[in-house]
């Protein structure tokens, strides 16, 4: 009698995360799922992320973007995420609206650089800041948004559970926070 076939382990979801013009608070909130992290890594592999220190994004199922677009590098990174991630999620107030960094939008960024630095460095290594801090949906197509500053840990958990299960993420009303 043949042994029953060993079921193939379901492919893990590949997830990349990044903080653009953000404070990493959203990433901290993700870590607040605490011991559920252990459960999560059974189902998820992390690609580029502050958690892995991988510097370039590979082919992924999900990209979580924290922060808005403050400079040219942010734009390039966001585009790389869009090109490599099947599903892109705007995480937190800054990604969704520009957030706190966007408070500078009514001032001229060139004038500010001059008044702070005097002689403004022209090193090509330094990404140039944008005239205005932009929410990420202005530049690439975003599939889902996770509001909050930061979104609660349970909101991250719910989103990832939904994506792992192949469901369209739906936020429970209690998890939608704007502050």
């Amino acid at each position: 009698m043949n042994a029953p076939p060993i079921p193939e382990a379901p492919r893990k979801l590949r997830v990349a995360t990044v903080s653009l013009g953000g404070c990493f608070g959203c990433h901290m909130s993700l870590l607040d799922i605490d011991e559920r992290l252990l459960e999560l890594i059974e189902k998820v592999d992390f690609d580029r992320s502050p958690l892995t220190d991988i510097k370039t994004v590979g082919e992924c199922d999900v990209g979580l973007i924290e922060g808005g677009l403050c400079n040219a590098e942010n734009v390039e990174v966001l585009r790389a995420f869009r090109a490599h991630c099947r599903v892109l999620v705007a995480v937190g107030a800054c990604a969704i609206t520009g957030g706190l960094p966007a408070l500078r939008n009514h001032l001229d960024v060139g004038d500010m650089l001059q008044s702070v630095y005097g002689e403004v460095p022209d090193d090509p290594e330094l990404p140039l800041p944008l005239n205005r801090v932009l929410p990420i949906h202005e530049v690439v197509h975003i599939d889902h948004a996770l509001p909050g500053c930061p979104p609660p840990a349970d909101a991250f958990w719910q989103l990832l559970q939904d994506l792992i299960a192949g469901r369209t993420p739906v936020q429970a009303p209690g998890l939608i926070r704007y502050d």
């Binding site: 960024v109 650089l113 140039l128």
Partner: peptide, 30 residues
Amino acid sequence: PDIDLDAELSSARRVTRRTDAGAHLHTDTP
């Protein structure tokens, strides 16, 4: 996008006087 992204770098280009490739952005999504 509905924004001229290269123009969004105009102010920083002005004060850094940079002209290198990194001082520009294309707007179309590749």
